[in-house]
Amino acid sequence: MQISMTVNGVGHEADVDPRTLLVHFLREALDLTGTKIGCDTSQCGACTVHLNGKVLKSCTLLAVQADGCEVTTIEGLAEGGEHHPMQTAFWENHGLQCGYCTPGMIMASAAFVRDNPGASEAEIRHYLEGNICRCTGYHNIVKAVKQVADAAAGA
């Protein structure tokens, strides 16, 4: 089936088998391998991207469902050669160890702080329920998100 999609600001046309999941399309057809597949059962959030600005687990949507939509992946978050503040905060706070969950964590957190500037630590921990990290114990991830949330609120 013929679909068109804008991914990280670039338009793409493709002919896909309807059973292609969005995450397969991004990784295999567009070679955007920053988006990871962790659980593949909708639990872990490693595959989190933004679809029309909303967080989505891209292993749980067909590529054909995203026809005509705008998708942002971790590769598209930096603007004008500058890291997104969430990327910088993960770097500064060492919010990762193996890094496998990181693209999903950053995509989820970036959308969260955009919608909830000034979020509290408790709100951040609650929000990140859908993103699982097997390495860090979450401490530095939460620290990184809090730094951006505070900055966004002008604190």
Binding site: S42, G45, K54, L56, K57, T60, F112, Y127, G130, N131
Partner: peptide, 9 residues
């Protein structure tokens, strides 16, 4: 329900 990504779709 679930988490924000699930609630969005």
């Amino acid at each position: 329900v679930g988490d924000q990504a699930v609630r969005n779709f």
